[in-house]
Simulated scan of single mutants.
Amino acid sequence: MIQTSARLLQLLSLLQMRREWTGPALADRMGVTERTVRRDIHKLRHLGYPIHASPGIAGGYQLGAGAQLPPLLLDDNEALAVALGLNSVAAGPVAGIGEASVRALAKVEQVLPSRLRPRFAMLKAAVTTLPSNAASVDPQQLTVVSAAISDRRQISFEYVKSDGEASRRLVEPYRLVDTGRRWYLVAYDLDREDWRTFRADRLASLPSERRKFTPRPLPAEDLAAYVQQSITRSPYRYDVVVRLRAPLAEAAAVVSSQYVTLTADGPAATLLRSGWDNLAAPAAYLAALDLDFDILEPEEFRSFARHLSHRLNAAAGPPASPATGPADVEPQPQ
């Protein structure tokens, strides 16, 4: 009995993880036969979980909306509290748990009983948060994207670039990345036939799901590092590299990873890499760090720094003469 109950919980968890499963895929994931899967599906239906089955090669099992809550034994008020809390974290993510909150919210909303949905919608509309530096993102957009990633389905949406240009995008979504201030979607753009990184707060419409896709090789093993590379260097005219004369820990304490990447260059130095559209901005940024540094790349930045140094010296004028004190005054003859 205990083994059967554990298997039912595992099956229910798998059905909540992805929108649709084939019988062979469930059997392989659980290490049982397809006949056992069919029997367990029947038991879950008997317990009140609406599990739909579609025939054919492309068919499978799908957990329907309005099922009983997952076996956490939550009452109505506890379920609303969990859903509302996850919604708040998704809209203004806490560093390190934002992506997990979106996945959990997608699961909770999927099985939230119909009697609780109006109350949840009313609470979401009534609750607001203080403004912060984080870019505002609609949690519903994130849950739709998260579900599409799990289901391996294409999505289509309106996207607005930084210059205000809007366009319709059709992509294969692969990962949501939370940087602490913004959400980014790593996806393969089917029209441009290349990988793209999209800011989630610039999605101008709710993504609509399209057909399923076969996953392709990722552009990098570490997609979080790939996003940081994209937002700090790739889109910019100048790729600036400098050596900070400070250990990595000291540099990281004063330099935000939102704008640059830092790597240790021995025990006493740190390499800083960042992208910029003009050279005046990194010159001002680096000067304000109050850390000594050496410009390594590009040569245009080194030339700009020399030119700026001459301009600043000319603007400052000649050094002031030292004041002459009373002790320096020659005694006058009487």
Rank of each mutant, 00 (worst) to 15 (best):
R181S: 13
V89G: 00
R202P: 05
T263N: 12
T324L: 07
T129K: 12
Y259A: 05
P55D: 08
L11K: 02
D138G: 08
L15Y: 07
N77R: 12
L176P: 03
V127C: 11
D138W: 11
R216V: 11
Y188M: 07
G48R: 04
E250D: 15
G266E: 09
A220W: 12
A79C: 13
L206S: 11
Q62A: 15
P318N: 11
P50K: 04
A135G: 02
L271A: 06
Q141N: 15
L26Q: 00
E165H: 13
L176G: 01
A288N: 13
A200Y: 00
G325H: 08
K43Y: 02
L271Y: 10
L123T: 06
Q154Y: 00
A287F: 11
R202I: 03
R245G: 09
Q68W: 11
D239Q: 08
V255D: 02
T214R: 05
R196H: 07
Y61S: 02
P322E: 07
A281I: 08
R245S: 14
S256A: 14
R115K: 15
S5A: 10
A253F: 08
R153N: 08
R216E: 10
D75S: 05
D239F: 06
T36R: 11
R306F: 14
E330Y: 10
A126L: 15
L291T: 01
G23S: 12
P55A: 08
Y174H: 10
Q140E: 15
V242Q: 02
G64L: 06
S114C: 05
Y174R: 07
Q141D: 10
A27M: 04
A79L: 07
K124N: 14
T4K: 11
G164T: 14
R18A: 04
A204Y: 05
L185P: 00
R199I: 04
A323H: 10
G164N: 09
S114A: 15
N87Q: 12
P71C: 03
A126C: 08
R152Q: 12
E297H: 10
R273G: 09
R182S: 15
A264C: 11
Y49F: 12
Q10I: 02
P207Y: 01
A320E: 14
L44Q: 02
V127N: 05
A126F: 07
G98K: 00
L80T: 05
A252N: 03
A58R: 12
G60A: 04
S230R: 09
M17A: 14
L223W: 12
D151P: 01
P131D: 06
L69F: 07
D189I: 02
A79G: 05
N77I: 12
A147Q: 08
I2Y: 15
R182D: 09
S13M: 07
V260W: 04
Q110P: 03
Q10W: 03
G31M: 14
L63K: 00
F293Y: 15
E78S: 13
F198C: 04
L218W: 09
A27K: 02
R39I: 01
R192Q: 14
R45T: 00
T214Q: 13
I149N: 01
R18D: 02
Y49M: 01
A81E: 11
S205P: 04
P217Y: 08
A91M: 07
D138R: 13
P247M: 09
